[in-house]
Simulated assay, not measured.
Amino acid sequence: MKRKRSKGEKAFSVFNYAFLTVLMIICLYPVWYVAVASFSDSNMLTVHTGLLMKPLGLSFDAYKKVFKNPMILRGYGNTLFILVIGVFLDLIMTSLGAYFLSRRGVMFKKPILMLVIFTMFFSGGMIPFYLNLKDLHLTNSLWGLIIPFMITTQNLIILRTSFESIPDSLIEAAQIDGASHLKILMSIVIPLSKAILAVMVLYYGVSIWNSWFWASAIIRDRQMYPLQIILREILVQNDTSSMTTGVGAADQEAIGMSIKYATIMVATIPILCVYPFLQKHFTKGTMVGAVKE
């Protein structure tokens, strides 16, 4: 029998939906503004004030100039290399570490886990980290943005907690049949942990896609710049000279603004397209990895 809701519950629901709707609009409008501005005529956009709900004189000039910039395509290629190889190696190393720390009877398990957790709060600092990269010949190399960051402590702990929720009876049955630990990990643990692994792909992927600091610190060859460094040059350093050649000095500022918006969209759309495919696993995977049953 359906329970009749009280007036207070109805009022709360109305307020809740109204509040969340307003909050959603506040969060979505900046994205909508950038998207609409990137398709607007640069001269009309310069003199426009107030809210922007639709393109001002539909124009694709900004996108044409963005894709004519060879560094954008080069940055895309470098970022995709770091993303694909990095996420693949991150999942392998994090899964191996999480499986090791999730098994019972492992020698020195607690001290090792405490050392792992210790790294969440204390580190050697940026300068020693950079010197290590230099001594390992990882500076000015894309591998310097992959190898040192293969395991994130927080992700390792979440994945370890998820692996611990797998019934021991399955592991013991596989061991009785003569399965090795690698076989158990690949044939039992990983297939039962697809949801949390999808969350790990999302976590590592977003982290790699958005990272720029260490790339700016260790990469000197412009041909190795990832996309975020190119984006930083355009937005922070206001460098659009490579895309405004042949444009009059009076129009450079106007077209430069449109180019910035178009560059933001070019750098943001790919990672936004990934979310719908991983969203269904996100809540389930996070809860499984965060709460031990």
Rank of each mutant, 00 (worst) to 15 (best):
F129T: 13
L96E: 10
K65H: 07
L133M: 15
V116L: 13
S59T: 11
S95R: 11
N132A: 08
V66E: 07
V106R: 14
K64F: 13
L138M: 14
K134P: 00
N69Y: 12
G77C: 06
A62Y: 12
I117P: 01
M120F: 08
P55F: 04
L101D: 01
Y63I: 05
K54W: 08
H137M: 08
L115H: 09
L89K: 09
Y99A: 11
L58F: 15
D61F: 00
L142T: 02
I146E: 05
L142M: 11
T94G: 12
F118D: 01
K64G: 07
L58N: 03
L145G: 06
K68D: 13
D135I: 03
I112M: 14
V116H: 10
P55C: 02
L89D: 06
L113P: 05
K65F: 00
L58T: 10
R103Y: 02
G125W: 01
N78E: 01
S59R: 12
V87L: 07
F81D: 04
G124Y: 03
M114I: 13
F108V: 06
R103D: 05
M114G: 01
V106M: 14
N132E: 12
P70E: 11
M120R: 04
V116T: 13
S123P: 00
I146A: 11
A98W: 12
L133H: 00
K64S: 13
S102E: 08
G125L: 03
F60R: 03
N78H: 02
V66C: 11
K109P: 08
I146D: 09
L113H: 06
L52N: 01
L58S: 01
F122W: 13
G86R: 10
L138S: 01
G77Y: 07
A98H: 04
H137V: 02
M126E: 03
F108S: 07
T94Y: 10
L91M: 14
G57V: 10
M126A: 06
F88L: 15
M71C: 00
M53F: 14
Y76M: 15
L138Q: 05
V87P: 02
L142H: 07
K54Y: 10
G77I: 03
L73T: 05
K109R: 15
S141M: 08
K110T: 14
L73C: 04
G125E: 02
F118N: 02
Y130P: 01
V87H: 06
Y130C: 01
L73Q: 02
M93A: 13
F67R: 07
V84S: 08
P128D: 05
G105K: 08
K134Q: 12
G125A: 00
L136G: 04
K110Y: 06
P70K: 10
M126G: 04
F100N: 11
F122G: 00
F100H: 09
L52S: 02
A62L: 10
N140P: 05
G105P: 07
A98M: 12
I92R: 10
L131W: 04
S102P: 07
